Amino acid sequence: MIHPHIRWNSLLVAVLVGIVVVVVVWWAGPGALGGTEAPQGTVTPATVSVPADCANSGAKETVEFEFGSQNHTGSLDACGHDKGDKVDILVPTGIGSGTADVHLADVNVGDSPLRRPVGLVLLALSCISGAVYAFLVQRGPRRPTVAA
Rank of each mutant, 00 (worst) to 15 (best):
V13Y: 12
V13S: 09
V13Q: 11
V13M: 13
V15N: 02
V15P: 00
V15F: 13
V17C: 03
V17E: 02
G18S: 13
V22R: 05
V25Q: 11
V25A: 15
W26V: 09
W26H: 13
W27T: 08
W27Q: 15
G29P: 05
G29E: 04
G29D: 03
P30W: 01
P30T: 09
P30K: 09
P30C: 00
L33F: 14
L33N: 01
G34T: 10
G35L: 07
P39E: 07
Q40S: 15
Q40D: 14
T44M: 14
P45K: 10
P45C: 07
T47P: 05
V48E: 05
P51A: 07
P51G: 05
C54N: 09
C54E: 07
C54D: 04
C54S: 13
A55E: 12
A55Q: 13
N56Q: 12
N56C: 00
G58C: 06
A59P: 08
E61L: 04
E66H: 01
F67N: 11
G68Q: 05
G68F: 07
Q70Y: 06
Q70R: 11
N71G: 00
H72A: 03
T73A: 01
G74K: 00
D77M: 06
A78I: 00
C79A: 03
D82A: 15
D82H: 14
G84A: 02
D85R: 04
D85M: 08
D88R: 13
D88H: 11
I89L: 12
I89S: 12
L90R: 03
V91Q: 06
T93N: 15
G94K: 05
G96K: 14
G96I: 09
G98T: 00
T99R: 09
A100C: 02
D101T: 08
V102A: 08
H103M: 09
H103Y: 10
L104T: 00
L104P: 00
A105T: 04
A105Y: 08
A105M: 05
R116S: 06
P117F: 02
G119I: 11
S126R: 00
S126Y: 05
S129Q: 01
A131F: 07
V132R: 11
Y133Q: 03
F135M: 08
L136P: 04
Q138W: 09
Q138H: 08
R139P: 03
P141G: 08
R142D: 10
R143K: 15
T145C: 02
V146S: 03
